[in-house]
Design a protein around this nucleic acid. Sequence first.
DNA 1: TTTAATATTTGACTATATTCGAAATATCGG
DNA 2: CCGATATTTCGAATATAGTCAAATATTAAA
Lengths: 116, 116
Amino acid sequence: MKADEAVSALDAVAHEHRLAVYRMLVKRGPQGLPAGEIAARLELPPSSLTFHLQQLRHAGLVTQRRLGRQIIYAADYAAMNRLVAYLTENCCGGAACTPACAPAAVKPARHQRRSA
Amino acid sequence: MKADEAVSALDAVAHEHRLAVYRMLVKRGPQGLPAGEIAARLELPPSSLTFHLQQLRHAGLVTQRRLGRQIIYAADYAAMNRLVAYLTENCCGGAACTPACAPAAVKPARHQRRSA
DNA sequence: TTTAATATTTGACTATATTCGAAATATCGG
DNA sequence: CCGATATTTCGAATATAGTCAAATATTAAA
């Protein structure tokens, strides 16, 4: 992955609404969701949602397909993994840092204590 | 992790120079690098670098400490892992999506066990 | 205390992103 | 074809980010 691709992808999710859309799609799975459903759930005007969906799509994070009158968006998991890998690449110069640096895989809402 | 914290962190790395700085620090390890060294390697004017370092720091992705005349910056690996976990959280609704979704099949990070 | 090294803050300028209503486009069912 | 539904494109207003030279702080050494 090139730096500018990573920047595009990160920029795409670096926004309140787009991050919400993206996480919704990640949670949804390959089945995806139609634009209208996303707009309804997040209470966004359709034109605003399109703007954000296009950014996610252009960044390669989501895919688009038509189903009748609807347009279905879905997360591209391969892209997600490439991005995460790029961010954490060469952690600690490759030294034995696994416990400290390895990114968590699937997190089942465990007790992560965080004092405010 | 809250949505706005994630947005701050993503926004911090969603920039060519900041991403380069961040990856350099991730690669460097807990030892970190002085601001001047980072500026020299990336050929950035000191004032511009400070601008970007502050964003990374304010977003919680890097830490800052003084060493003599220098100010050392280092990646915060716990924050990195929280961010990655947030992005990939509840992948596919928790269904059996491991081959498609699981980022770098690695067990969740525990505690830092690294000799400095 | 003076000087040099290191890093940050300030300030002024330029450029880009976000928002959303209204109009346009594409699809379906009759 | 026509009306209804789903989504996108356009356009204009508003807001925020990025750049870097010069001035300022902080520390160390002579």
